[in-house]
Computed example of a mutant assay.
Amino acid sequence: MDQPQNNPKAYWRENLRYLILLLTLWFLVSFGAGILFKEELNAIKIGGFGLGFWFAQQGAIYVFVVLIFVYVRLMNKLDRKYGYDEEA
């Protein structure tokens, strides 16, 4: 058995690691870029608006949607790794 099969504790440990990593990234983008570093980022203009304003209004939402797709892909990989995929 070269694959870890049906080990729920290891599966959830990896799942939580992914969640913490992705939610931390989203927090940094939404809170960091949209609020904390808004003034510095506003020096960069996108369509006439500052980058900090863009992140606060739209960027964090776009990043969140991308992170959903990243999470789905990571979880599909994790399901296959631990034998929880539907094809098995």
Results as ranks from 00 to 15, higher is better:
Gln5Arg: 09
Val66Leu: 15
Leu16Lys: 12
Ala43Arg: 12
Val66Met: 10
Gly50Ser: 03
Pro8Arg: 04
Asn7Arg: 13
Asn15Ala: 15
Gln5Cys: 04
Ile68Ala: 13
Asp2Pro: 07
Asp79Ser: 04
Lys81Ile: 02
Gly34Tyr: 05
Lys9Thr: 13
Glu14Arg: 13
Leu28His: 07
Asp2Gln: 06
Arg17Met: 14
Arg73Gln: 10
Lys81Asn: 02
Tyr84Gln: 01
Glu86Phe: 07
Tyr18Arg: 12
Glu86Lys: 04
Ala88Cys: 04
Gly59Ser: 10
Ile61Cys: 03
Lys9Met: 14
Ser30Tyr: 14
Ala10Leu: 07
Gln57Ile: 06
Leu67Arg: 08
Phe64Pro: 01
Leu51Asn: 03
Asn76Thr: 09
Leu25Met: 08
Ser30Leu: 12
Gly34Asn: 06
Gln3Leu: 08
Val65Cys: 08
Phe49Asp: 15
Leu41Thr: 08
Ser30Gly: 14
Lys38Trp: 08
Thr24Cys: 13
Asn7Trp: 05
Phe27Arg: 09
Leu22Met: 15
Phe37Val: 11
Phe55Trp: 06
Asn42Gln: 07
Glu40Lys: 06
Phe53Cys: 02
Ala33Phe: 13
Phe49Ile: 15
Val70Phe: 05
Leu36Gln: 11
Ile68Gly: 11
Trp26Met: 05
Phe53Trp: 12
Leu51Lys: 00
Gly34Asp: 07
Val63Trp: 11
Gly32Cys: 06
Ile20Asp: 11
Arg13Phe: 08
Ala33Gln: 08
Gln58Ile: 13
